[in-house]
Design a protein around this nucleic acid. Structure first.
Lengths: 162, 162
DNA sequence: CATGATGTTCAGTCTTGACTGAAAGTTCTG
DNA sequence: CAGAACTTTCAGTCAAGACTGAACATCATG
């Protein structure tokens, strides 16, 4: 059973992730998997905790798993699947957020070629935006790497890899 | 009249911005203002170009203007307002995107206090995510400043300010 | 291979919220 | 100050899509 404040957190995760392209259920599921005990939960447990149908759990788990944000695991002699939020999920989430900038930049490139014949003072408006996106796009991995090495230092130089 | 490829760009802007929390109309309007000629457009012109009602233009312009992404200007002896996409609009857009990380971090803090009494191995899942967000939150302004100084160099050291 | 347990699919329902359009409000000109 | 030109507001419409739940598929076990 979820406490009042836990439930509030799970619901907020649903709202925020929903406002950024995922479904509310995806946010709730990830949120719950980040705080639940035990860390591994069956579909039936998730359905009960989140007050959701089996169908919703199944579909949402598929999306989150293919995005790398949750992990599915099985146990010998147990038909059920167990879901959990692994550490890499965080990285995948950040990576997904970073991809947005590339997507935007590509669209802006197409926009620029659509107005290729316009005077420079017109084109400069879009170019400026495209340039910012291109810059951020290349910076995101650098920032993330910097975080990783900072963390490696903090936790006593574990995980230099990746 | 919009060309085929311009129309495609405008529509794509609508879709992408919509998938990131804004309305389709906001994306379309910003997109169009980034490529239209002349740069300043009246509400009536926008309504025609975007095939939208006056009401939709009014509401959307309010949102975009208060977010700092478009500018409203008036001319003496002309009741109409003119809308345009100024260079600062780009900065405001980036700033808005950056704010997301702070919002997420705050929510994660609340989540952490909701599970304050749990064992460390449970809390570490959320803490990890919170730490990444906090790091990125502080990095975003730095990245943007780096872009500004790079651009200042590129354009012959204009605009050191801001 | 029959049975029960679990997972997936999908047609239908229901909610949310973007957009329309008409009415009301505001500001300029003669 | 009357009237025209715009803009804003808001109740209503409509479409998109998240979720449900039942039917169907799959798998382990006796």
């Amino acid at each position: 059973m979820m406490s009042e404040s836990e439930s509030r957190f799970v619901e907020e995760m649903g709202q925020i992730l929903a406002s950024y392209g995922m479904t509310p259920m995806a946010g709730r599921m990830w949120g719950w998997l980040l705080i639940c005990e035990p860390a591994e939960q069956t579909a039936a447990e998730l359905a009960e905790a989140l007050h959701a149908s089996r169908g919703a759990i199944s579909g949402t788990a598929r999306i989150l798993a293919s995005a790398g944000m949750i992990r599915r695991s099985t146990r010998r002699g147990d038909r059920r699947e167990y879901f959990s939020a692994p550490p890499e999920g965080t990285d995948q989430f950040i990576a997904g957020a970073g991809r947005v900038y590339g997507q935007l930049r590509e669209m802006l490139e197409r926009g620029l070629s659509a107005i290729a014949d316009r005077p420079p003072e017109t084109r400069v408006r879009l170019q400026e935006l495209r340039d910012v996106m291109a810059f951020i796009e290349t910076e995101v991995p650098a920032v993330f790497d910097r975080y990783l090495s900072e963390r490696a230092g903090r936790t006593g130089r574990k995980d230099i890899s990746r």
